[in-house]
Design a protein around this nucleic acid. Structure first.
Lengths: 146, 146
DNA sequence: ATGCAACTGCAAATCGTTTGCAAAAGAGCG
DNA sequence: CGCTCTTTTGCAAACGATTTGCAGTTGCAT
């Protein structure tokens, strides 16, 4: 029942290819990221990493996140009022719906919206480099724990 | 368009009505906000305020922004990698296109996109409280400078 | 004018993140 | 293996944006 789908791209290979060293902290962080189902922030990654290797520092988590982001291996999201949260870049583009009560993040995608965005930008004489679309809401019909 | 502009709503009246004191710093900040055509950040507001009254402090700018935000008089935007920027809440809802080269902010609105957002949220069992849609792009054709 | 809560400036605190530095550890080579 | 030559690390300190505690000031209802 725990069959990972797109969960474990071979980052080590990719890193190597980019002339970047595979160190113990990086291996640990990479593992955590590929197993993460949510969108953890640096502190969460740090804590999970600490369980595996107590000597890993928060700075290294941040440095690694920046490295991976630069490689395009992960995406960094700055949702409202909170630390940055990360997610694997595997899979295709999507936007986010944030549950205001639980902080849960739900991914969605709308081709139609993206088309409209392009159209709007074009009309204004712009070319979109990237965008950010976040919906903040609450569950309809009363609360529910997850 | 019969309505002039949205430049100078009578905040003083509103503030009074909410039992909030009209102080010199607040008057100055309010004036700056109503004359701002762009989306200034706290430091910019602070600097413009300093010209008028050298004794105004940055803390007061922040405190006033929070107060006004709480009253719904202004909106706070946290665009990518930068301090929060503020804008008067007068006028109707819109989203933003940020010029990556100049930092300029262009406002736009699309009913169609909002409808689609609602639809998506509804399908996921959510009710949107608010959203954030930001397009980051550059001028097409290479034209620079505004 | 008087009084008192609301407000202010200032400095210090906070939060998330980055950075300088000396020590430690990858990886190619012999 | 052991030797280099780098890259990477942990730590602590620095950072930028924003907030807060405090003691003194001010608005404004009386």
């Amino acid at each position: 029942m725990n069959e990972p789908q797109q969960t474990k791209p071979d980052y080590e290979r990719e890193l190597r290819r980019a002339g970047i060293r595979i160190t113990r902290p990086r291996r640990v962080i990479l593992d955590i990221l590929s197993e993460a189902d949510s969108h953890p922030d640096a502190m969460e990654i740090f804590q999970r990493a600490s369980v595996i290797d107590k000597s890993i520092s928060l700075s290294t988590v941040y440095r690694t996140m920046k490295l991976l982001e630069g490689m395009g291996a992960i995406h960094r999201h700055a949702f409202e009022g909170g630390p940055a949260r990360f997610e694997q870049a595997s899979g295709e583009h999507h936007d986010h719906l944030i549950d205001l009560d639980t902080g849960d993040v739900i991914e969605f995608h709308s081709n139609r919206i993206e088309e409209l965005q392009d159209e709007i930008a074009r009309e204004l004489g712009y070319e979109i480099v990237h965008h950010r679309l976040e919906l903040y809401g609450r569950r309809k019909g009363g609360r529910k724990k997850k």
